[in-house]
């Protein structure tokens, strides 16, 4: 468990969604939008190919917080902006920095990047510590 004080960097979370991740996540989440699971459909609507579910990527941001804080109970709030598009078979990295600690709650600014692009930006987590 990381010691979350102002200036602390969140332990980096790295994960590479495999070729069929979007299919498994579609089943697990119930979001079967074809832009995530059908290569032909995604191209027809002008995308480079199937894209990751934004809420899967947000779950990676959430996991980076709960792993740093020692469990799911610690995550009190998470807000994110979705930008760019995540794609399968490329590493996603979640980084973050503790900006403030007030009354036992750390405010963590965090982002998810892939191929050098922030696919989740301006994210802020409220994490209970101690």
């Amino acid at each position: 468990m990381a010691d979350l004080i102002p200036g602390t960097e969140l332990p980096e979370l790295k994960t590479t969604p495999d070729r069929f991740l979007t299919v498994r996540y579609a089943g697990a989440s119930g979001d079967f939008n074809p832009i995530h699971i059908d290569e032909d459909f995604a191209r027809q609507v002008g995308l480079p190919g199937r894209i990751l579910h934004g809420l899967w990527t947000m779950a990676q941001v959430a996991r980076a917080q709960t792993e740093a804080a020692g469990g799911p109970h610690a995550l009190k709030a998470l807000s994110v902006q979705f930008r760019g598009m995540g794609v399968p078979e490329a590493e996603v990295t979640v980084t973050g920095t503790v900006r403030d600690v007030t009354d036992g709650v750390a405010l963590i600014e965090t982002v998810a990047t892939q191929n050098g692009i922030e696919i989740i930006r301006n994210a802020v987590a409220e994490v209970e510590i101690g």
Partner: peptide
């Protein structure tokens, strides 16, 4: 089992899930 399915799809390894 739905919790397990979801947890595995998002890469959770915490045994609580």
């Amino acid at each position: 089992e739905k919790i397990r399915e979801y947890a595995l799809a998002v890469g959770e390894t915490n045994p609580l899930h």
